[in-house]
Design a protein around this nucleic acid. Structure first.
Lengths: 125, 125
DNA sequence: CGGCATGCTTCCCAAAAGTTAGTACCCACT
DNA sequence: AGTGGGTACTAACTTTTGGGAAGCATGCCG
């Protein structure tokens, strides 16, 4: 029954402590918009602000700015601003961001494949 | 540069549409507490309310109730309530929940391993 | 000179999350 | 007899967060 779980190496008592650093990182990375930005940049191609806005459909400018600032500070994303007018800014993943995106991708694929069934269940209940 | 990305099968234009069913599922599953509950139940062992509260340290009773209701409705978790006094309720993962937890685990392991470095970068900026 | 394009920032309000208190139920102890 | 405690929630209230729309800086083009 009990699956061998590598997490136990880190959490022998299976308690996820409130002050744990991983909590903070999880909040940044698994946030609604953080996730979408990482996935949008996930294939390594740099994207501009307006392009990110288009791909993470529904994101407000405020949240996109906030999300990008967090991801840049955490070292997942690099911001490359060229001092031209009109401004030209490109965002792309760092090696760390690429590692994370590689883990996020299969998850997203699973979610996309199963989402219709899941919502059907949710609607039926 | 561009990594072969299976997500393109589902999102040829790489746009994550606002109304897409997967968005709803992502919001449920990647939410702060939803994630912790899924990880806590991830090894297949059923847990009681109070035990879940202990493991997802910091969760309020309101949010735990709300999170569990969502996860049950989505078919990730089963709620098994025995009509005894004091009440005894057990929560465990469905097969679907186990599939998802299996994808979440490597992600969590990566986050735990890298969290200290990431926060160090964040603090330095 | 006035409009436009781009990448943000600021302000205000609605929605979500957190906090605290209360409920139902029966048992055990005083 | 009554008091308190353990369990799993729910309800009312407050604080935090997120969304929407507008503003700003800059220079080019008509």
């Amino acid at each position: 029954m009990a699956v061998s779980n590598p997490l136990r190496t880190f959490f022998p008592d299976r308690v996820f402590a409130a002050g744990c650093p991983s909590r903070t990182v999880l909040d940044h990375v698994m946030s609604k918009w953080g996730l979408l930005v990482l996935l949008a940049l996930g294939d390594g191609e740099p994207l501009r602000w307006s392009e990110l806005r288009r791909r993470a459909e529904g994101v407000s400018e405020k949240m996109l700015a906030q999300t990008l600032r967090t991801l840049v500070a955490d070292g997942f994303v690099v911001r490359d601003a060229r001092p031209v007018v009109p401004p030209h800014v490109e965002y792309s993943l760092t090696p760390r961001g690429l590692e994370l995106a590689a883990l996020l991708n299969p998850l997203m694929v699973w979610v996309v494949e199963n989402a219709p069934d899941i919502l059907e269940d949710a609607a039926a209940s």
